Simulated scan of single mutants.
Amino acid sequence: MKTKKKRVEEELIKEAIEEEHRIRKAFKDKDWAEIKGANSWMIFKVMSEFVEGLEKLAKIGPCVTIFGSARVKPSNPYYKMAEEIAFQLVQQGYGVITGGGPGIMEAGNRGANRAKGKSVGLNIYLPHEQKGNIYIDPDKLITFDYFFVRKVMFVKYSQGFIVMPGGFGTLDELTEALTLIQTKKIGRFPIVLVGKKFWGGLIDWWKKVLVNEGMIHHEDLDLFNLVDTPEDAVRVIDEFYSKYLLSPNF
C-alpha cells in the first residue's frame, strides 16, 4: 500500500510531466494554415461575446460598477461596506454591476438584491472556475472568456466606478478607466476609491513619483475621489451628475 508521501511524490511528478507537455506544445512549430485557422475562430468567439454583452446590457438603465477583491469574506469590513454602498445606490435609483464573482463582487450584488434593484454580473472564466454569485439577476449574468471584452462592457454601461480594496485585477480596472478618461477616449464619469488607509500609500506614490517625474499632470489626480464611508461614496456619484447634467457643456 502506498504511503501518503509516495502518493504526493507521484502527483508532483505527474504535474511536472503535464507542465512539460504544455510547454512543448506551446513552442511547437505551427504551419500557416493552423495559425490562420486558430486566429479566425478566435475572432468569431470575440464577436459573439460582444454581441451577447451588448444585447443583454442595452436596456439596463443607469448603473454603477463596484470593483474589489474576490478574496474577502462576508465578515470582512470591506465586504459589509460594499454591500451597504450597493444598497444605497439602488435607493438612489441606480442599478449595480460587478464582476460577478465572490468577495466584494458578491457583496455588491447582495446589496442591490437586498434593495430589490438591478443586479448585474459580468463574470470571467478563470483557471479556478470562478462562478457567478447567487445574488445576480439570472438574466443579467454574462460570462466572458476575454478580459478586454468584459472591460468594454464595464465602461460602456457604467455611470460610475466604486473601487473597493482589491488586488491586481482591481488595479487593472481602475487604471484602465483613469487612462481612458485622461486620454479623452471616453467621457468623464465619477471614480470613487473607498478606503483611505488602503489606497493612501498608492496615491502618495502617484503624487510623489508620477507627478514629480512628469509622468502624469497634477490635474490628473482630480479624476478620482477618495472616501471612507458608503454615504460619501454614493454622495460623490450623485453630486457628479447633479453638477454635470446641469452643465451646458456636459
Rank of each mutant, 00 (worst) to 15 (best):
I66T: 03
F67S: 02
G68K: 02
S69M: 00
V72T: 10
K73A: 05
P74N: 12
S75L: 03
N76L: 03
P77Q: 07
Y78S: 06
K80S: 06
K80Q: 13
M81F: 01
E83V: 04
E84Q: 10
A86D: 05
A86G: 13
Q92E: 14
G95K: 08
I97H: 02
I97S: 01
G100H: 05
P102S: 11
P102F: 05
I104H: 02
I104D: 03
I104G: 00
M105E: 00
M105P: 00
G108K: 01
N109V: 07
N113G: 13
N113E: 13
N113K: 15
R114F: 12
R114K: 15
R114G: 12
K116M: 10
G117P: 12
K118M: 15
K118P: 14
S119L: 09
S119N: 14
S119T: 13
S119M: 12
V120L: 02
L122C: 12
N123I: 05
N123Q: 10
Y125M: 06
L126M: 05
P127D: 07
Q130E: 04
Q130D: 02
K131D: 03
G132L: 02
G132K: 01
I134W: 01
I134G: 08
Y135F: 11
Y135G: 01
D137W: 07
P138Y: 11
P138L: 14
Y146W: 12
F147E: 11
F147C: 12
F148T: 14
V149W: 10
R150V: 14
R150H: 13
K151A: 11
K151M: 10
V152Y: 15
V155G: 09
Y157H: 10
F161L: 06
I162H: 07
P165G: 04
G166E: 00
G167M: 03
F168M: 09
F168H: 04
G169S: 09
T170S: 05
T170Y: 05
